[in-house]
């Protein structure tokens, strides 16, 4: 065994290198993650789950929801949008002529077609998104030119990606989002939609419960299995239960019966409502959507 020590050393280095890469480096990078502050706000992100939502994470885990649902929104790019808020003294027609005069600028060459198309048939309604481009400098140069011409505009940051185009979020998921998930339910297969911000898309607990009981009653083509065992079908007592589902048609229980969620269903619904990855963070910036001015 002259080479015994060499074999030990080689094994140690090989395993140690992968351990360093897969365990140590991520720990050093993200192990100290703490609550962060939401951009342009004083609120913290993320918030610790409370009560039913905490229990709901374990229900979500127990029924293998992560087998068909992910909780991670992907982002492929970022863009700046220049949105007009006021034309000042200019008439829309003058303004369009002014923008067309800018088309000669070499920096705008890549965006002239899109801008021309968006200005076609524009009736002067505001706010109006004029330019969408990935280059921040081009966008701010455009905003400066508009300002010099007495036109007010706002430059907003928007995240771009297939998931975001599907309406599954405003930005990509980042490590901070999962700070209080134990365990993290990332998921890897999307038989169903991503749930990273389902609490924003469907903020109604009754909707969530009905969808769990009979997905097809809400989305006719849904392939999601009905989780009927999370509910109790029972005879209506002296008064209907306040949390009975409001079902109609084929999905309604027989006359004199009502569908009432068991505690597990309520917990799962509370967990789903707690999934709200909608806060702009330093590591995933975007301009929050505000009411149109």
């Amino acid at each position: 065994m002259k080479t015994g020590f060499s074999i030990f050393l080689a094994t140690f280095v090989a395993l140690g290198a992968s351990w360093s890469g897969f365990v140590l480096a991520p720990l050093l990078q993200l192990g100290g993650a703490k609550q962060t502050v939401i951009l342009q706000s004083t609120d913290n992100w993320p918030q610790q789950r409370t009560g039913n939502a905490t229990l709901g994470l374990q229900v979500y885990r127990a029924y293998g929801c992560a087998a068909c649902h992910t909780e991670q929104v992907r982002q492929t790019g970022v863009a700046c949008e220049v949105t007009l808020t006021s034309l000042g003294v200019q008439q829309p027609a003058d303004f369009v002529a002014f923008v067309r005069s800018l088309f000669a600028l070499p920096e705008l060459a890549a965006y002239t077609n899109a801008m021309a198309a968006s200005l076609d048939g524009w009736n002067g309604g505001l706010p109006k998104t004029l330019l969408t481009c990935p280059d921040k400098d081009v966008a701010s140069a455009m905003a400066d030119r508009l300002k010099a011409a007495g036109i007010k505009s706002e430059t907003s940051i928007v995240a771009i990606g297939p998931d975001i185009a599907r309406g599954w979020g405003f930005r990509q998921s980042v490590a901070a989002d999962y700070l209080y998930d134990q365990p993290v339910q990332l998921g890897s297969l999307r038989a169903g939609p991503d749930l990273a911000n389902i609490g924003v898309r469907a903020p109604d607990a009754r909707w969530q419960l009905q969808h769990l009981y009979a997905p097809k009653s809400i989305t006719p083509g849904s392939t999601m299995p009905a989780f009927k065992f999370l509910f109790e079908v029972r005879q209506v007592g002296a008064q209907p239960a306040p949390d009975a589902l409001n079902l109609t048609g084929d999905f309604a229980p027989p006359a004199g019966f009502e569908v009432v969620p068991k505690p597990e269903a309520t917990e799962l619904a509370a967990y789903l409502l707690s999934l709200k990855a909608n806060a702009p963070l330093y590591e995933a910036p975007f301009t929050p959507v505000t009411a149109a001015k």
Binding site: A25, L28, Q29, L30, G32, A33, L39, Q40, Q75, T76, G77, V78, C80, K136, A143, E154, T155, S156, I157, Q172, V174, A175, P280, Y282, E283, A284, P285, F286, T287, P288
Partner: peptide, 29 residues
């Protein structure tokens, strides 16, 4: 290895450049 830098941002400077600053509101704050 910056914990804040995720793709598509390639560096801390790029990330900094894309922090939203809606002109009037930011100045007022």
């Amino acid at each position: 290895f910056d914990a804040h830098v995720y793709a598509p941002y390639s560096s801390a400077e790029k990330l900094e450049a894309y922090q939203p600053q809606s002109g009037a509101a930011a100045a007022l704050a």
